[in-house]
Design a protein around this nucleic acid. Structure first.
Lengths: 188, 188
DNA sequence: TATAGCATGTAATTAGTTACATGATTAA
DNA sequence: TTAATCATGTAACTAATTACATGCTATA
């Protein structure tokens, strides 16, 4: 029974409570999406697969007119989730960062173009950091009320990562500015 | 003319010099792979496509018995690369990190299991940091000999990122250990 | 002489996104 | 009444990996 990582994302979300595919997607979009994203095109077929495997159980509901199907973990699902959480298999880690890729090839750019690009990179990470800080109050209060604490921790991690990128960019910007000053002492 | 990011990776590598698909792959594996990976299954078809588009030009060679085809940028290819490097389009940024994902769901684990997992996460990043430090002398000496400097900078970035992760994990480990001490003051 | 490395390529598969179709309810 | 939101789902597409087939050269 070898599941995709996204399958475990779903199992994990259901461990947090009975949920529909739509609710899972909404939750992912304000939480794990910064380190593990998922789209409807993955979630709905995966829910069907997991039910087929007996790891989750769906309960259809029409009562309020809207057709919905909320899923829960079965015992087997709980076990599969726990096995994954405690396994020592090497972790899937993947980074695709176009900004750093551009930087790698930027020797051919003028100092001015280089500065502009690194500035853009910094601004993007600043914006992401802000978005994460806007989310923060929710998980924080949840944690303070003795709810799950680790989700909050990973949010803090996300903010710290964005800040790391911002600081790194700033340092490079200063470095490039310093060189420019040496090359052309009086620009004004 | 809308190219994939991986197409720009190839254009960038060819800007650095005439190269075969095999050489591009080898270079990618010791450089950009940590922020933008590529496999043969992408590189060879993409080379054909880029040649079709007139952005690169291949030159077949049998002289040493081995069949090889080395590519160079055309004028159009140079321009496409420069346009990408200086464009202000939002950057593709994607992170898939199974370790952080596990952490997000780890509230249901015992403190001991939690510590073990975060330790594993730290160790993986330590190992990656070491691998990057092992690569470092190459690009550093290249830079010192007035060769390209930005590739070295992105390598430094890679090391800094791994170290950020290691430090973050260490902090969480200490935090969890502190809590354990409060809960069970005398474990031995 | 065997193995590692150079070199090119493809087929099959997996992963993931985007865009659409459908239809209900709720709030402006 | 219109727009936003809830809700499920799929088809088409893009991206990427894996594993294989082929055949050469250089080195141990």
């Amino acid at each position: 029974m070898d599941l995709s990582k996204t399958a475990y994302l779903i199992l994990g979300m259901l461990k947090l409570g009975k949920r529909t595919g739509y609710e899972i997607k909404s939750l992912v979009d304000v939480s794990t999406r910064f380190f593990w994203a998922a789209s409807y095109g993955q979630i709905y077929p995966e829910l069907a697969r997991l039910e087929e495997l007996g790891l989750i159980e769906g309960q259809a509901d029409q009562s309020d007119g809207r057709r919905r199907k909320a899923y829960e973990l079965t015992q087997a699902g709980e076990e599969a989730l726990h096995a994954w959480l405690t396994s020592s298999d090497p972790l899937h880690r993947e980074l695709r960062h176009e900004g750093v890729l551009k930087l790698f090839f930027s020797d051919s750019l003028s100092p001015d173009e280089q500065r502009q690009q690194i500035r853009r990179l910094r601004v993007e990470h600043e914006r992401t950091a802000e978005r994460l800080r806007a989310i923060e109050p929710g998980p924080r209060s949840a944690r303070e009320e003795q709810g799950p604490r680790l989700p909050y921790l990973t949010l803090e991690w996300g903010i710290a990562y964005q800040e790391f990128m911002v600081h790194w960019c700033s340092r490079i910007e200063r470095q490039l500015a310093g060189e420019a000053a040496t090359t052309a002492p009086r620009e004004s």
